[in-house]
Simulated assay, not measured.
Amino acid sequence: MPSPTRRTVLALGALAGALLAAGCTEDHRDADRADRPDPDLPLRLRAVAATDRLLTDYDAVIAGPGADRAAALRELRADVEEHRAALAAGLPAPSPSGPTPSSATASAMSATSATAAPAAGVAALAAAERRTAAERLADLEAASPALARLLASVAASGALHVRALGDPGPIAPPAPTATAPGASAPGVSASASAPVSPSAAPTGAPPTGAAPAGSAGGSASGHPAPLPTGAVAALQAALSAEHAAVYGYGVVGARTPAGPQRDAARAGYAAHQARRDALQRELDGAGATPTAAAAGYRLPFAVSDAAGAGQLAAHIETQLTAVWADAVAGTGGALRQTAATALRETALRAAQWGADLSALPGLPEQDAADGAGTTPGTSASASG
């Protein structure tokens, strides 16, 4: 890994400034939509039903043998309660008389309501977490930008829970039933929750020279396939943050002695290089000019030893969870799945470096309380 030779170093603003600005919805559009059915309602109902099922699984395991793990399981359960609150925000309150659910409600809840017995042990609980996260990923494409951002964050938290429960198995959505003509199938890395290995390819990153999942790649006539303006802005913001992350990991590696921590630094450096390169190819294939690396970066705090290097790596990854959560909202289709994969992977690396992530990685606390907040806009800023 190259040592940093520039006098300027990583700036917090280079990552935080890459976040997409929250968009505002015009009042008259809100009024127009007030009488329309909420297209996210079936997805929210299904997610809430699945989350209730997961809470039941936690209760069954906590009440069973192995009380030594009960405290840790309660902490994970508290995260799941936060997921439920965010997913249920804005749902119509049930009538005190308990009316029969509508057909849409019944259909949305039927897939998660009924069959298996509660999880009987920690391994079964990890499998339930993985299954629930995969279901949230399967709903990404049909969700509104704001709900997709929330679902991807819930799935990222589920990946963290799976790891905490001792299961390194992958988090992946079910195979799509149909793919739009000319589009790649949504790409989710099977290694999304695998431990970082210095000898392995970067987690979830395409091999060098390969187009990323959902790549525009140009049309059959050889002309670039354009992306929506909002998707381009989201990818450019992510690219700016990945440029900064690559430089930041250069600092991490330079301040870390040989050993497992430096191996993890090398793996993180390679993963962010691959993400950066994939984003550049994606934008270039769509006819957009990829954002260049800034002329200089500044560290958010002094890094003089291995402890400081680890804190910097945790800081970088935590900042990137917000960048990639916004990219989920700003894109669609296979690109949305790719952004959700990046969100999960950066959350897992943040946890590996000791970051204390919230129950909803990448979402500001107020957005989480509001059920995903507003849809990110298309503007982005950068600082150097």
Rank of each mutant, 00 (worst) to 15 (best):
residue 322 A to I: 03
residue 80 V to A: 05
residue 360 L to H: 01
residue 334 A to S: 15
residue 21 A to W: 00
residue 301 F to R: 15
residue 288 A to N: 13
residue 177 T to R: 09
residue 88 A to L: 01
residue 296 G to N: 08
residue 181 P to M: 07
residue 66 G to N: 06
residue 350 A to E: 09
residue 363 L to W: 01
residue 117 A to G: 10
residue 87 L to A: 07
residue 47 A to F: 02
residue 194 A to S: 13
residue 269 Y to C: 03
residue 172 A to I: 05
residue 33 R to A: 13
residue 164 A to N: 07
residue 215 S to Y: 08
residue 260 P to K: 05
residue 141 E to A: 09
residue 154 V to Y: 00
residue 137 L to V: 10
residue 231 A to R: 01
residue 31 A to R: 14
residue 285 G to N: 08
residue 21 A to P: 02
residue 191 S to V: 12
residue 235 L to Q: 06
residue 83 H to D: 12
residue 252 V to C: 10
residue 380 A to V: 09
residue 232 V to D: 06
residue 62 I to Q: 11
residue 202 P to M: 09
residue 280 Q to T: 13
residue 338 T to E: 09
residue 366 Q to I: 05
residue 240 S to Y: 00
residue 304 S to Q: 14
residue 102 S to C: 04
residue 331 T to V: 02
residue 134 A to G: 15
residue 357 L to P: 04
residue 341 T to G: 15
residue 134 A to Q: 08
residue 89 A to L: 01
residue 221 S to F: 11
residue 359 A to N: 09
residue 63 A to M: 09
residue 191 S to H: 06
residue 128 A to M: 07
residue 26 E to Y: 08
residue 206 P to M: 10
residue 140 L to A: 00
residue 13 G to M: 04
residue 337 Q to S: 15
residue 224 P to F: 04
residue 73 L to H: 02
residue 36 R to S: 10
residue 290 P to R: 10
residue 18 A to T: 03
residue 86 A to V: 00
residue 323 V to E: 11
residue 245 A to Q: 04
residue 281 R to E: 01
residue 306 A to V: 13
residue 364 P to K: 01
residue 287 G to H: 00
residue 384 G to C: 12
residue 222 G to P: 11
residue 92 P to N: 07
residue 276 R to H: 13
residue 225 A to M: 06
residue 241 A to P: 06
residue 172 A to C: 04
residue 133 A to Y: 00
residue 179 T to E: 11
residue 70 A to N: 11
residue 313 A to Q: 13
residue 87 L to I: 00
residue 125 L to I: 06
residue 7 R to C: 06
residue 229 T to I: 08
residue 288 A to M: 11
residue 323 V to I: 14
residue 124 A to D: 15
residue 188 V to E: 08
residue 194 A to D: 12
residue 192 A to N: 15
residue 192 A to S: 15
residue 175 A to V: 02
residue 378 T to P: 02
residue 297 Y to F: 11
residue 364 P to I: 00
residue 182 G to E: 10
residue 28 H to R: 07
residue 257 P to I: 03
residue 287 G to D: 11
residue 95 S to P: 02
residue 153 S to M: 03
residue 242 E to S: 11
residue 313 A to S: 14
residue 309 A to M: 10
residue 365 E to W: 01
residue 39 P to M: 04
residue 291 T to K: 03
residue 227 L to C: 13
residue 101 P to V: 08
residue 6 R to F: 05
residue 370 D to P: 00
residue 275 R to N: 09
residue 377 G to K: 00
residue 278 A to R: 13
residue 298 R to W: 11
